[in-house]
Protein backbone atom coordinates (compact mmCIF):
# COMPACT_ATOMS: atom_id res chain seq x y z
CA UNK A 1 0.00 0.00 0.00
CA UNK A 2 2.95 2.34 -0.53
CA UNK A 3 3.80 2.77 3.14
CA UNK A 4 7.16 4.28 3.92
CA UNK A 5 9.74 1.57 4.59
CA UNK A 6 10.41 0.98 8.25
CA UNK A 7 7.12 2.59 9.16
CA UNK A 8 4.94 -0.45 9.20
CA UNK A 9 3.93 0.75 12.62
CA UNK A 10 0.41 -0.49 12.84
CA UNK A 11 1.28 -4.04 11.89
CA UNK A 12 0.44 -6.12 14.90
CA UNK A 13 -1.89 -8.79 15.99
CA UNK A 14 -4.10 -6.40 17.91
CA UNK A 15 -6.36 -6.35 14.83
CA UNK A 16 -7.57 -9.78 15.88
CA UNK A 17 -8.69 -8.41 19.23
CA UNK A 18 -10.91 -5.85 17.53
CA UNK A 19 -12.29 -8.56 15.29
CA UNK A 20 -13.12 -10.97 18.12
CA UNK A 21 -16.90 -10.40 17.96
CA UNK A 22 -16.77 -10.73 14.21
CA UNK A 23 -14.78 -13.99 14.39
CA UNK A 24 -17.32 -15.44 16.82
CA UNK A 25 -20.17 -14.38 14.55
CA UNK A 26 -18.63 -15.59 11.32
CA UNK A 27 -17.72 -18.96 12.79
CA UNK A 28 -20.81 -19.56 14.88
CA UNK A 29 -23.54 -17.93 12.81
CA UNK A 30 -22.22 -18.09 9.24
CA UNK A 31 -19.64 -20.78 8.48
CA UNK A 32 -20.89 -23.53 10.77
CA UNK A 33 -24.53 -22.85 9.78
CA UNK A 34 -23.55 -22.90 6.09
CA UNK A 35 -21.94 -26.31 6.47
CA UNK A 36 -24.78 -27.54 8.67
CA UNK A 37 -27.40 -26.41 6.20
CA UNK A 38 -25.59 -28.11 3.32
CA UNK A 39 -25.57 -31.29 5.39
CA UNK A 40 -29.25 -30.87 6.29
CA UNK A 41 -30.14 -30.57 2.61
CA UNK A 42 -29.19 -34.27 2.26
CA UNK A 43 -31.38 -35.31 5.19
CA UNK A 44 -34.90 -35.58 6.49
CA UNK A 45 -35.16 -33.42 9.58
CA UNK A 46 -38.12 -32.03 11.52
CA UNK A 47 -36.32 -30.48 14.53
CA UNK A 48 -37.53 -33.23 16.87
CA UNK A 49 -35.51 -36.32 16.00
CA UNK A 50 -32.04 -36.32 14.56
CA UNK A 51 -31.43 -35.70 10.85
CA UNK A 52 -31.79 -38.82 8.73
CA UNK A 53 -29.49 -39.13 5.70
CA UNK A 54 -31.40 -39.45 2.43
CA UNK A 55 -28.67 -38.63 -0.08
CA UNK A 56 -29.84 -36.65 -3.10
CA UNK A 57 -33.54 -37.41 -2.52
CA UNK A 58 -34.47 -33.83 -1.58
CA UNK A 59 -32.89 -32.42 -4.73
CA UNK A 60 -34.41 -35.18 -6.87
CA UNK A 61 -37.83 -34.40 -5.45
CA UNK A 62 -37.39 -30.64 -6.00
CA UNK A 63 -36.69 -30.97 -9.70
CA UNK A 64 -38.59 -34.12 -10.52
CA UNK A 65 -41.60 -34.30 -8.32
CA UNK A 66 -42.55 -30.91 -6.89
CA UNK A 67 -44.57 -28.82 -9.33
CA UNK A 68 -45.31 -26.26 -6.63
CA UNK A 69 -41.59 -25.70 -6.14
CA UNK A 70 -40.88 -25.36 -9.85
CA UNK A 71 -43.81 -22.98 -10.06
CA UNK A 72 -42.35 -20.83 -7.27
CA UNK A 73 -39.00 -20.76 -9.07
CA UNK A 74 -40.56 -19.67 -12.39
CA UNK A 75 -42.77 -17.13 -10.68
CA UNK A 76 -39.86 -15.57 -8.80
CA UNK A 77 -37.56 -15.45 -11.83
CA UNK A 78 -40.36 -13.89 -13.87
CA UNK A 79 -40.99 -11.35 -11.13
CA UNK A 80 -37.28 -10.43 -11.01
CA UNK A 81 -37.12 -10.02 -14.80
CA UNK A 82 -40.15 -7.72 -14.82
CA UNK A 83 -39.98 -5.81 -11.53
CA UNK A 84 -36.28 -4.94 -11.33
CA UNK A 85 -35.95 -3.29 -14.77
CA UNK A 86 -39.21 -1.40 -14.24
CA UNK A 87 -38.04 -0.15 -10.87
CA UNK A 88 -34.66 0.89 -12.26
CA UNK A 89 -36.31 2.64 -15.22
CA UNK A 90 -38.51 4.60 -12.82
CA UNK A 91 -35.48 5.39 -10.66
CA UNK A 92 -33.48 6.60 -13.66
CA UNK A 93 -36.34 8.70 -15.02
CA UNK A 94 -36.80 10.32 -11.62
CA UNK A 95 -33.05 10.87 -11.29
CA UNK A 96 -32.94 12.63 -14.66
CA UNK A 97 -35.78 14.86 -13.52
CA UNK A 98 -34.28 15.63 -10.12
CA UNK A 99 -30.52 15.79 -10.72
CA UNK A 100 -30.21 19.22 -12.39
CA UNK A 101 -29.87 21.96 -9.82
CA UNK A 102 -33.13 23.78 -9.57
CA UNK A 103 -35.17 25.35 -6.83
CA UNK A 104 -36.85 22.80 -4.61
CA UNK A 105 -34.95 19.75 -5.86
CA UNK A 106 -33.77 18.83 -2.36
CA UNK A 107 -37.35 18.60 -1.14
CA UNK A 108 -38.43 16.57 -4.16
CA UNK A 109 -35.52 14.15 -3.75
CA UNK A 110 -36.30 13.58 -0.09
CA UNK A 111 -40.02 13.03 -0.74
CA UNK A 112 -39.37 10.71 -3.70
CA UNK A 113 -37.10 8.71 -1.40
CA UNK A 114 -39.71 8.42 1.37
CA UNK A 115 -41.57 5.37 -0.08
CA UNK A 116 -38.26 3.51 -0.21
CA UNK A 117 -37.90 4.06 3.51
CA UNK A 118 -41.41 2.90 4.38
CA UNK A 119 -41.92 0.30 1.68
CA UNK A 120 -40.24 -2.68 3.34
CA UNK A 121 -42.52 -2.51 6.38
CA UNK A 122 -45.40 -4.81 7.21
CA UNK A 123 -47.58 -1.71 7.61
CA UNK A 124 -47.13 -0.72 3.98
CA UNK A 125 -47.64 -4.26 2.70
CA UNK A 126 -50.96 -4.72 4.49
CA UNK A 127 -52.04 -1.22 3.51
CA UNK A 128 -51.09 -2.02 -0.08
CA UNK A 129 -53.35 -5.06 0.04
CA UNK A 130 -56.25 -2.99 1.35
CA UNK A 131 -55.51 -0.26 -1.18
CA UNK A 132 -56.00 -2.67 -4.09
CA UNK A 133 -58.89 -4.59 -2.53
CA UNK A 134 -62.62 -3.83 -2.58
CA UNK A 135 -63.21 -0.43 -1.05
CA UNK A 136 -59.55 0.45 -1.44
CA UNK A 137 -58.10 3.71 -2.64
CA UNK A 138 -57.18 2.39 -6.08
CA UNK A 139 -60.73 1.36 -6.88
CA UNK A 140 -62.16 4.65 -5.72
CA UNK A 141 -59.63 6.46 -7.89
CA UNK A 142 -60.38 4.30 -10.94
CA UNK A 143 -64.12 4.72 -10.33
CA UNK A 144 -63.77 8.38 -11.30
CA UNK A 145 -62.89 7.11 -14.79
CA UNK A 146 -65.85 4.75 -14.75
CA UNK A 147 -63.80 1.61 -14.22
CA UNK A 148 -65.70 -1.03 -12.34
CA UNK A 149 -64.63 -1.94 -8.82
CA UNK A 150 -62.79 -5.23 -8.40
CA UNK A 151 -60.36 -6.90 -6.02
CA UNK A 152 -56.94 -6.75 -7.61
CA UNK A 153 -55.44 -8.87 -4.83
CA UNK A 154 -57.89 -11.78 -4.82
CA UNK A 155 -57.46 -12.29 -8.53
CA UNK A 156 -54.57 -14.64 -9.39
CA UNK A 157 -53.90 -12.87 -12.67
CA UNK A 158 -53.53 -9.37 -11.20
CA UNK A 159 -52.11 -9.83 -7.70
CA UNK A 160 -48.55 -10.23 -8.95
CA UNK A 161 -48.79 -6.86 -10.68
CA UNK A 162 -49.92 -5.31 -7.42
CA UNK A 163 -46.66 -6.56 -5.86
CA UNK A 164 -44.70 -5.31 -8.88
CA UNK A 165 -46.32 -1.91 -8.32
CA UNK A 166 -45.12 -1.94 -4.71
CA UNK A 167 -41.58 -2.75 -5.87
CA UNK A 168 -41.66 0.11 -8.38
CA UNK A 169 -43.07 2.43 -5.71
CA UNK A 170 -39.86 1.89 -3.72
CA UNK A 171 -37.56 3.29 -6.44
CA UNK A 172 -36.14 6.00 -4.17
CA UNK A 173 -32.95 4.24 -3.08
CA UNK A 174 -31.63 3.47 -6.60
CA UNK A 175 -32.81 6.94 -7.64
CA UNK A 176 -30.58 8.58 -5.04
CA UNK A 177 -27.62 6.55 -6.28
CA UNK A 178 -28.42 7.47 -9.91
CA UNK A 179 -28.56 11.16 -8.99
CA UNK A 180 -25.12 10.97 -7.40
CA UNK A 181 -23.85 9.23 -10.54
CA UNK A 182 -25.40 11.77 -12.90
CA UNK A 183 -23.77 14.60 -10.98
CA UNK A 184 -20.37 13.02 -11.48
CA UNK A 185 -20.61 13.22 -15.26
CA UNK A 186 -18.48 16.26 -16.17
CA UNK A 187 -20.37 19.16 -17.74
CA UNK A 188 -17.69 19.43 -20.46
CA UNK A 189 -18.78 16.13 -21.93
CA UNK A 190 -22.28 17.45 -22.44
CA UNK A 191 -20.97 20.73 -23.77
CA UNK A 192 -18.82 18.94 -26.32
CA UNK A 193 -21.78 16.83 -27.40
CA UNK A 194 -23.96 19.91 -27.75
CA UNK A 195 -21.29 21.58 -29.92
CA UNK A 196 -21.26 18.49 -32.13
CA UNK A 197 -24.98 18.94 -32.57
CA UNK A 198 -26.13 15.92 -30.56
CA UNK A 199 -29.82 16.02 -29.71
CA UNK A 200 -31.27 14.98 -26.36
CA UNK A 201 -31.86 11.36 -27.44
CA UNK A 202 -28.33 10.90 -28.78
CA UNK A 203 -26.91 12.58 -25.70
CA UNK A 204 -28.88 10.21 -23.50
CA UNK A 205 -27.99 6.98 -25.32
CA UNK A 206 -24.41 7.87 -26.24
CA UNK A 207 -23.28 9.77 -23.14
CA UNK A 208 -25.57 9.46 -20.15
CA UNK A 209 -26.17 5.71 -20.34
CA UNK A 210 -22.54 4.67 -20.97
CA UNK A 211 -21.17 7.05 -18.35
CA UNK A 212 -23.75 5.79 -15.88
CA UNK A 213 -23.34 2.11 -16.73
CA UNK A 214 -21.26 1.14 -13.66
CA UNK A 215 -24.02 2.51 -11.45
CA UNK A 216 -26.75 0.88 -13.51
CA UNK A 217 -24.86 -2.37 -13.07
CA UNK A 218 -24.50 -1.85 -9.31
CA UNK A 219 -28.23 -1.13 -8.92
CA UNK A 220 -29.09 -4.07 -11.16
CA UNK A 221 -27.08 -6.61 -9.16
CA UNK A 222 -28.42 -5.37 -5.83
CA UNK A 223 -31.97 -5.22 -7.21
CA UNK A 224 -31.87 -8.75 -8.62
CA UNK A 225 -30.49 -10.24 -5.41
CA UNK A 226 -33.03 -8.54 -3.17
CA UNK A 227 -35.99 -9.09 -5.52
CA UNK A 228 -35.23 -12.79 -5.64
CA UNK A 229 -35.59 -12.88 -1.85
CA UNK A 230 -38.90 -10.97 -1.78
CA UNK A 231 -40.87 -12.14 1.23
CA UNK A 232 -42.79 -9.47 3.17
CA UNK A 233 -44.99 -8.17 0.31
CA UNK A 234 -45.26 -11.65 -1.19
CA UNK A 235 -46.72 -13.03 2.01
CA UNK A 236 -48.84 -10.05 3.00
CA UNK A 237 -50.23 -8.66 -0.26
CA UNK A 238 -51.32 -12.14 -1.29
CA UNK A 239 -53.47 -14.22 1.01
CA UNK A 240 -50.55 -15.02 3.33
CA UNK A 241 -50.19 -18.59 2.11
CA UNK A 242 -48.92 -18.06 -1.41
CA UNK A 243 -52.41 -17.77 -2.83
CA UNK A 244 -54.81 -17.09 -4.41
CA UNK A 245 -54.12 -20.23 -6.47
CA UNK A 246 -50.38 -20.11 -5.67
CA UNK A 247 -50.10 -16.82 -7.56
CA UNK A 248 -47.96 -15.25 -4.80
CA UNK A 249 -45.96 -18.37 -4.00
CA UNK A 250 -42.60 -16.62 -4.19
CA UNK A 251 -39.44 -18.62 -3.67
CA UNK A 252 -38.93 -17.33 -0.13
CA UNK A 253 -42.59 -17.89 0.75
CA UNK A 254 -42.32 -21.52 -0.31
CA UNK A 255 -39.09 -21.89 1.66
CA UNK A 256 -40.76 -20.40 4.74
CA UNK A 257 -43.75 -22.72 4.42
CA UNK A 258 -41.66 -25.86 3.99
CA UNK A 259 -39.43 -24.99 6.93
CA UNK A 260 -41.68 -23.34 9.47
CA UNK A 261 -45.16 -24.59 8.66
CA UNK A 262 -44.42 -28.17 7.60
CA UNK A 263 -41.17 -28.48 9.64
CA UNK A 264 -39.40 -30.03 6.66
CA UNK A 265 -36.02 -28.57 7.58
CA UNK A 266 -33.98 -30.86 5.32
CA UNK A 267 -36.11 -30.19 2.28
CA UNK A 268 -36.17 -26.45 2.97
CA UNK A 269 -32.37 -26.46 3.29
CA UNK A 270 -32.15 -27.97 -0.18
CA UNK A 271 -34.45 -25.18 -1.40
CA UNK A 272 -32.15 -22.62 0.24
CA UNK A 273 -29.04 -24.11 -1.36
CA UNK A 274 -30.60 -24.09 -4.82
CA UNK A 275 -31.40 -20.43 -4.19
CA UNK A 276 -27.75 -19.76 -3.39
CA UNK A 277 -26.69 -21.59 -6.55
CA UNK A 278 -29.22 -19.73 -8.72
CA UNK A 279 -28.16 -16.36 -7.34
CA UNK A 280 -24.49 -17.23 -7.87
CA UNK A 281 -25.21 -18.19 -11.50
CA UNK A 282 -27.33 -15.08 -12.12
CA UNK A 283 -24.69 -12.82 -10.55
CA UNK A 284 -22.01 -14.58 -12.60
CA UNK A 285 -24.01 -14.06 -15.79
CA UNK A 286 -24.53 -10.40 -14.98
CA UNK A 287 -20.81 -9.92 -14.40
CA UNK A 288 -20.04 -11.76 -17.61
CA UNK A 289 -22.37 -9.62 -19.71
CA UNK A 290 -21.15 -6.49 -17.91
CA UNK A 291 -17.90 -6.68 -19.87
CA UNK A 292 -19.90 -5.79 -22.95
CA UNK A 293 -21.94 -2.88 -21.69
CA UNK A 294 -20.39 -1.50 -18.52
CA UNK A 295 -17.78 1.18 -19.14
CA UNK A 296 -15.49 2.05 -16.29
CA UNK A 297 -13.82 5.41 -16.69
CA UNK A 298 -10.09 5.84 -17.31
Amino acid sequence: MGRRPGHDFTRSRSGYVFLTPWFVGVAGLVLVPLAFSLYLSFTDYNLLGSPEWVGLDNYRQLFGDDDRYLHSMRLTLGYVVVAVPLQLAAALAAALLLSPSRRGQGVYRALFYLPSLLGASVAVSITWRALFDYGGGVNSFLATFGIEERSWVNNPSTVLWVIVALEIWRFGAPMVIFIAGLQQIPAEVYEAAALDGAGPVTTFTRITIPMLSPIIFFNLVLGVISAFQTFTPAQLVGDGRGGPADSTLFYAVNLYQQAFEYQRMGYASAIAWVMLAVLAVVAGLLFWTSRRWVHYGD
Binding site: V26, G28, L29, V30, V32, P33, L34, F36, S37, L40, L47, I225, F228, Q229, A252, L255, A259, F260, M265, A268, S269, A272, W273, M275, L276, L279, A283
Partner: peptide, 16 residues
Protein backbone atom coordinates in the same frame (compact mmCIF):
# COMPACT_ATOMS: atom_id res chain seq x y z
CA UNK B 1 -21.39 -12.21 3.62
CA UNK B 2 -22.67 -8.99 2.04
CA UNK B 3 -23.98 -10.97 -0.92
CA UNK B 4 -25.01 -14.11 0.96
CA UNK B 5 -28.81 -14.48 0.93
CA UNK B 6 -29.99 -14.66 4.54
CA UNK B 7 -32.38 -17.50 3.72
CA UNK B 8 -29.46 -19.93 3.50
CA UNK B 9 -28.58 -19.29 7.14
CA UNK B 10 -32.16 -19.16 8.38
CA UNK B 11 -32.73 -22.84 9.08
CA UNK B 12 -29.38 -23.75 10.67
CA UNK B 13 -29.45 -20.56 12.77
CA UNK B 14 -32.98 -21.41 13.85
CA UNK B 15 -31.80 -24.91 14.81
CA UNK B 16 -28.94 -23.44 16.85
Amino acid sequence: ILFLPKEVLLIPQYTI
